[in-house]
């Protein structure tokens, strides 16, 4: 039997005496050879009624979404589903299928896998569609709102930016928004590197002013109501307990222009910039 995975199939790597249960709905638990066989059988025998993606819908012969059907979701490792195929649903005009038992199990595994693919959103692939107008992107790049050319040049630091981002629109757009890297350092407080924190991945500089007027600069590590900690350029960590507003801290983010643009961009601006930069 090939059903390592699928809801209720034999647990992958487990058994009656396994100390911990196996989560069989995770895609890693599937036996892909069974899934692949099931996919081929489905395409040959089932897709003509249920659609190639098994979801049914208005353009298919039957409007049954198999990926949301209890016959699939409540099946355990192909057992119930392969039995079901042997009888079909004559009342709903679904014929029976005289398939070898393993074929029924394989079809069930393919359906279970399709269910899992829709669940695991971290594996979703964004479409690579450049919809913007490169000319308009160039105008924004050099214009009074974007002012990108104040810091950047498409023949200088941005040369090859399309290639670096694999000519993938979502990747390139993320790079445009982020200034080429992830950065923190907003108005919030917190530990360095935390969202809204003072770390800023090296893009944020903290200027600490002591009561005696002395100024110390460095990378913020922790800026809270009670503690100020920075790392100076020579690698030394300096920490002060805070008494009210002292010591005072001013944060400067070298990517501030990118932060400011976040509230100015239209969607078209981002799409146009991406189209413009893609072949640079």
């Amino acid at each position: 039997m090939a059903q390592r995975g699928g809801r209720g199939g034999a647990p992958a790597g487990g058994g009656p005496n396994a100390s911990r249960p196996v989560e069989i709905t995770a895609s890693r638990a599937f036996e892909m050879s069974s899934v692949d066989r099931g996919g081929k059988i489905f395409a040959e025998q089932c897709a003509s009624c249920h659609g190639a993606n098994a979801r049914g819908g208005k353009t298919t012969k039957t409007d049954v979404d198999l990926l949301r059907s209890d016959y699939v979701l409540m099946d355990h490792g192909g057992r119930e589903f392969s039995d079901f195929l042997k009888t079909g649903r004559p009342d709903k005009n679904m014929p029976k299928f005289d398939l070898p038992n393993q074929d029924g199990v394989d079809v069930a595994m393919w359906l279970h896998h399709q269910v899992t693919v829709a669940v695991e959103r971290q594996s979703y692939v964004k479409l690579n569609v450049f919809s913007g107008d490169a000319k308009a992107g160039e105008a924004f790049f050099n214009g009074s709102v974007g002012k990108c050319n104040t810091c950047h040049s498409v023949t200088g630091d941005l040369k090859g930016i399309g290639e670096k981002n694999h000519h993938d629109n979502p990747t390139l757009q993320a790079s445009i928004l982020n200034g080429g890297s992830l950065f923190g350092g907003g108005r919030g407080r917190g530990r360095g590197g935390a969202p809204g924190g003072g770390g800023g991945g090296g893009n944020v500089t903290a200027t600490v002013t002591l009561k005696n007027g002395e100024e110390v600069k460095g990378t913020p590590r922790m800026i809270t109501d009670f503690v100020v900690e920075i790392r100076t350029p020579d690698g030394e960590d300096k920490t002060w307990l805070r008494d009210g507003e002292w010591p005072k801290v001013k944060l400067t983010n070298r990517l501030q222009a990118h932060i400011d643009l976040m509230l100015k961009y239209t969607d078209a601006d981002i799409h146009n910039l991406s189209a413009y930069l893609n072949d640079k």
């Binding site: 979502p170 950065f183 509230l263």
Partner: peptide, 10 residues
């Protein structure tokens, strides 16, 4: 998929 917008947490 965003960048820092200067938004506040609190």
């Amino acid at each position: 998929f965003g960048g820092n917008s200067g938004g506040r947490q609190g």
